[in-house]
């Protein structure tokens, strides 16, 4: 269903959805305000969101495992702005990424990733 609803790329073609609000009939006035609400012009919108897939984690032992597995879904800042966490807490985070958010992380990388993150929390990396 989503593919049907997902809008085609519209470019910047301006599609006017609403005529001027003078045409809002009496019965559509909101009771609370007692004045007509002008429908806004809903035009097609195209934007470009900034990306940062290429941003590396700070250098350190096992950084390759973290670069390979921890930046597909979110910026590195999601990880780097966290409070210092223990190895056990970081392990829980990594498991959550795999078990809940379905991060395709090879099991044999979990240990290395956890070590990197724990040492980051100790001020190293």
């Amino acid at each position: 269903m989503m593919s049907k609803l997902f809008p085609a790329i519209a470019g910047l073609g301006l599609v006017l959805m609403a005529p001027a609000f003078a045409s809002v009939p009496e019965h559509r006035q909101p009771t609370a305000l007692g004045r007509p609400v002008p429908p806004p012009m809903l035009r097609s919108v195209t934007v470009s969101l900034p990306q940062d897939f290429d941003q590396d984690y700070p250098k350190g032992e096992y950084v390759d495992a973290v670069n390979a597995n921890c930046r597909a879904c979110h910026s590195t800042s999601m990880v780097l702005m966290q409070p210092p966490l223990s190895a056990e807490e970081w392990h829980k985070e990594v498991r959550k990424m795999i078990d809940v958010y379905k991060a395709p992380i090879p099991e044999d990388q979990v240990e290395a990733i956890t070590r990197y993150l724990a040492s980051l929390s100790k001020g190293g990396a």
Binding site: L5, P7, A8, I9, S44
Partner: peptide, 11 residues
């Protein structure tokens, strides 16, 4: 997140 929303085909 879609970077484009087409006002006429949106449902």
């Amino acid at each position: 997140i879609p970077e484009s929303v087409d006002a006429s085909s949106f449902r």
